[in-house]
């Protein structure tokens, strides 16, 4: 294609080409301005508002709101739920990515679709299915009532719903990454006498660590921030079955706006940290890809 430019008169070609493959400065400025205005209105303004409202009644009130016993117990429950959901989905994600990326078998694309399935389910329905299973009128409801086990409207149900909602996140992160890396290195290790676990720890893990880390971060953020699914299976009992997002809702509905935004600011901080780590991980991935010239650049993935 470059030869076309060379055949043109030397003086006239570059500006013509530049105008052809780019927009005029005025158009650029208008488009950039529009995009910035849109992002400012939809993304930046809500962020600024959360911080502003959180501090609306001063720093002392802010501290009081996040140190209040109900807020602390909500924070503890949020950590507990994420502490169960994330490791469980880590095991599932690694297992799923291993069999899908390293082996050929029938029904693979169906399996990938099934892994994605929870993404397509409304959070409300994700909570509802556990009420249908374990609620008073559910499949196992009578048995659970006889044995005095509470799952729904209690902590176990909230853990289950969160695990369901966040189950695809780590698998989705690892599958494309491991598919792209192929299995030549692992096969070499096995042929040279390494055992299965050794191969995973020494060969696979170093290759996927950044993708895995990002999957973990995203899974954790979603587990801590889940609202709809958890809301359906929560008993909404203050200090017992409230997570941080549910606590935000309760405070907001009680018109304790400053306190509500104060707790919300903690979750906002979590989101910002997640975004920062994500950006750092992407840089690392790019660097790793540039260093190992034979391994191709990881494709941009959609974190849904």
């Amino acid at each position: 294609m470059a030869t076309i430019a060379i055949t043109r008169p030397a003086g006239a070609a570059p500006p013509a080409i530049r105008r052809a493959t780019g927009e005029s400065p005025a158009v650029r400025r208008v488009l950039t301005g529009l995009a910035l205005a849109f992002l400012g209105l939809t993304l930046v303004l809500p962020l600024v508002l959360v911080l502003h409202e959180a501090l609306a009644k001063g720093f002392a009130a802010y501290l009081a709101a996040i140190r209040e016993p109900d807020a602390l117990s909500a924070a503890r429950l949020t950590l507990l739920i994420a502490g169960v959901a994330v490791p469980v989905n880590l095991v599932f994600g690694v297992a799923a990515a291993w069999c899908i990326a390293k082996f050929e078998f029938r029904g693979k694309s169906l399996l990938i679709t099934l892994i994605d399935l929870p993404f397509a389910v409304s959070p409300v329905i994700s909570g509802m299915i556990f009420v249908l299973l374990f609620g008073a009128h559910g499949w196992f409801g009578a048995w659970l009532a006889d044995h005095d086990v509470r799952i729904v409207f209690a902590v176990p149900g909230m853990v289950l719903a969160t695990t369901f909602v966040t189950s695809p996140l780590i698998a989705r992160e690892l599958i494309p990454l491991m598919q792209e890396q192929g299995s030549d290195q692992e096969e070499a290790a096995i042929v040279l006498g390494a055992r299965g676990w050794q191969t995973f720890w020494r060969v696979t893990l170093p290759n996927i660590k950044w993708g895995l880390l990002y999957g973990l971060i995203l899974c954790n953020a979603r587990a801590m921030g889940e609202f709809g699914a958890v809301s359906v299976v929560s008993g909404h009992i203050r200090g017992e079955t409230n997570t941080l997002p549910l606590h935000v809702e309760i405070l907001y509905n009680e018109y304790s706006f400053a306190a509500s935004f104060a707790v919300a600011s903690l979750l906002t901080l979590l989101a910002l940290v997640t975004l920062a780590l994500k950006t750092a991980v992407e840089w690392q991935q790019r660097r790793q890809a540039l260093e190992g010239a034979e391994t191709s650049v990881p494709t941009e993935r959609i974190a849904a």
Binding site: V91, F92, V94, A95, A96, W98, C99, I100, K102, F103, E104, F105, L111, L114, I115, L117, P118, V121, I125, M128, I129, F130, L132, L133, G138, W139, L160, T163, F164, S167, S183, E186, E187, I190, V191, R195, G196, T199, F200
Partner: peptide, 29 residues
């Protein structure tokens, strides 16, 4: 046939987890 180990275990974990955690609950709807 692959020389890599762990196919049975990883597929087993994946399918069991998906069945119990995702498919069975969704089927109740």
């Amino acid at each position: 046939r692959s020389v890599l180990p762990g196919f049975g275990v990883s597929l087993g974990i994946t399918c069991t987890y998906l069945s119990l955690m995702v498919l069975l609950p969704l089927a109740t709807v």
